[in-house]
Simulated scan of single mutants.
Amino acid sequence: MDLIADIILGLGAFGAAVYCLILSRRLKRFNNLRDGMGGAVAVLSAQVDDMTKTLDHAQSAAGESAAVLTELTERAEASARKLELMMASLHDLPDPAAQQPAAPPPDTQPQAGFASTRPADPAPNPDIPVFLRHGFMEAAE
């Protein structure tokens, strides 16, 4: 009986050795850097490293852009407050059209030696804001 048990134990050990040999060969082919999964894992690892660096760079650039945008927004709000104060102070000024007598119409004839193709400016309208009263210059052709 001991002899049969030893033979069965020897056959089991031999079977396990053959199984380990087959697994070893498959694992070598699997980890091959040229054709197997090892190459794919190496490439993916390199890509992950590159993407991590790119992400870090993008985050730092976004942080800088946010800081610049915040600064510009604060400057714009300060300028808007100043403009609102200026507009409010304009309401305190007396109306210039009501205080001055009517001016004679401007001379529409060009002065001697000057050729003007621009029509004479109409009288200022107090209902139009100051920054829109000014005429626009046209480019020479």
Rank of each mutant, 00 (worst) to 15 (best):
H134D: 05
A16L: 07
G113E: 00
A123L: 10
P105E: 00
I4L: 15
D107S: 12
A88W: 09
A80E: 06
D107Q: 08
A140W: 00
M86K: 07
K28H: 02
E141H: 06
Q59W: 04
V41M: 15
F30Q: 12
F14T: 13
Q59T: 09
F136E: 02
E138F: 12
Q109W: 14
L83M: 15
L11N: 10
S45Y: 01
A61K: 13
V48D: 00
L85A: 11
D121W: 03
H57W: 01
S60C: 08
I4Q: 10
R34P: 01
I4G: 10
A5W: 06
S45R: 11
P110F: 05
D121F: 11
A42H: 15
P124W: 15
V43C: 13
D6Y: 06
P94W: 04
T73I: 00
L44I: 05
F30E: 13
G36N: 08
P124L: 06
L72A: 10
G63R: 05
D50T: 12
A78G: 01
I22A: 09
A40S: 12
A140N: 04
I128F: 04
V41Q: 05
D6H: 10
R133T: 08
R26V: 14
A40C: 10
A40K: 15
K82C: 02
E138I: 06
L23H: 03
P110N: 10
H91F: 14
A112T: 06
K82R: 14
Q100M: 14
A76N: 03
A120G: 07
F136M: 01
E84A: 09
A98Y: 03
V18Y: 00
H57L: 03
F131E: 13
T73G: 09
A123G: 05
L11R: 03
E64H: 15
D49V: 05
M87Q: 14
D35K: 04
A120H: 07
P124F: 12
A123W: 09
E74K: 05
F131I: 06
R133V: 06
A5N: 03
A76M: 11
M37H: 13
P94G: 03
V130E: 13
A46M: 04
P126D: 05
L9H: 08
V130D: 12
L69D: 02
P101G: 09
Q47G: 15
P106K: 04
L83I: 11
E141W: 01
H91Q: 11
E77H: 11
D121K: 13
T70F: 11
L33N: 00
V18H: 02
D92K: 09
G63K: 07
A16K: 04
A76V: 06
M1R: 10
A120S: 08
L23V: 09
L69V: 15
N125S: 13
G10P: 01
